[in-house]
Design a protein around this nucleic acid. Structure first.
Lengths: 211, 211
DNA sequence: CAATCTTGATTGACTGGTCAATCAACTATC
DNA sequence: GATAGTTGATTGACCAGTCAATCAAGATTG
């Protein structure tokens, strides 16, 4: 049963996927009903969903597959490997927090995080999008910079988490826990602080350490 | 209707709460059924739950109220405010990651995180336990240390996230996303790296900065 | 070019099953 | 024997998924 009009068919399908992303993100997979999704997609019957998707799980998977790219970092890894840390890490951090400005990206992030906690399969999918792409690049880059002496040598995986961690904490305190002080903290300030602390440390400069 | 035996009553109640924590943590609030919880609590009827709790939501709230202390940081804030950063922050980080060694704490963490994403009320509860207690203390401590010149001056909220963020990233990559390299990274290494990077920075010592 | 046919798209009603919550009855304890 | 504790059955609501019927629009035919 080929679609009557390929273009119309795809448009309607995307319309349902968009609606499903919002509802899954807001309610979670279990609580989201087909009725909710149909209403959000402005179609009058939940039954129509089954014309475009096999079942609720299939719809969920299609949402991930077709909207996950919104969370991809477009980083030209090879070009950047030899650029100086401040430049590369600032761009990395900015790319990461830029997600916050995109409604669909935030919804996607929440949906994936929420389901990843109970569903290892979803966690694995998440791993193949944002974190691994990002952390893999970061770990490799930091290791290379340690090799050429630009950065202090240490566990590269731990170091990668020291850079990406503050950004994750920022996103979580803003979008999930809605902490009061997160509102007054701008993305720019946070990126700056993260990169500065990571590179220069909190120690007063003239002294080598603290404590 | 006072309990026949206060001790027995409380024991059974705790038994159900323990079971509920495990099931809520594994399945999430919506998917967790009273039957699952009854089975996990080794009681033969879901109906019994209603002898001890008003409804499913009440049970959920009781689980949080009675098991949340597992996530509390026992930090003697006032005694620590003037101790040197390396000591205080190391203890803070160790207390934070110590949660990983406790099965109930990990379950509690997952349950709260999973529900916080969709339920602002739960997020608010979470705020009044771990993060706010921790971040509030941390922010205050860092601000004080900046005042007395031990640490570089900057946005204290951003700084607090720079310390706690890597630890959160570590917990998430271990317990939620189950990333391969997280298994080889020990708590001790991660705490060490976090505190070191936070205090000393990644910059090679003899040079003040990098890039 | 109009009537009819064909087919994909859409709807709303329906079904089988699940679940939270209730209830009546049974058991153990004081 | 009264009452708390416990059980299994029951109820009523809700939901994923199915389905028959309708609609709309293009193709076919006379």
């Amino acid at each position: 049963m080929p679609p009557r009009d390929e273009h119309d068919y795809e448009a309607r399908r995307q319309q349902i996927i968009d609606a499903a992303l919002q509802v899954f993100s807001r309610e979670g997979f279990e609580k989201a009903t087909n009725k909710d999704i149909a209403r959000a997609a402005r179609v009058k019957s939940p039954g129509l969903i089954y014309h475009y998707f096999k079942d609720k799980t299939d719809l969920f998977q299609q949402v991930i597959e077709e909207r996950a790219p919104a969370l991809q970092f477009i980083l030209r890894a090879d070009e950047m490997i030899d650029l100086p840390p401040r430049e590369v890490l600032t761009e990395f951090a900015l790319t990461f927090v830029a997600m916050l400005d995109n409604r669909a990206s935030v919804a996607m992030f929440k949906m994936l995080l929420g389901e990843s906690i109970r569903k290892p399969a979803v966690a694995a999918m998440f791993n193949h999008i944002a974190p691994v792409r990002g952390v893999t690049f970061l770990t490799r880059y930091l290791e290379h910079q340690m090799d050429i002496g630009t950065l202090r040598r240490m566990d590269a995986g731990a170091a990668a988490r020291c850079l990406i961690g503050p950004l994750i904490a920022f996103v979580l305190t803003r979008e999930v826990f809605v902490q009061a002080d997160a509102a007054t903290l701008t993305s720019k300030t946070m990126v700056q602080a993260t990169v500065d602390v990571f590179l220069d440390g909190m120690a007063v400069k003239q002294d080598s350490g603290s404590a």
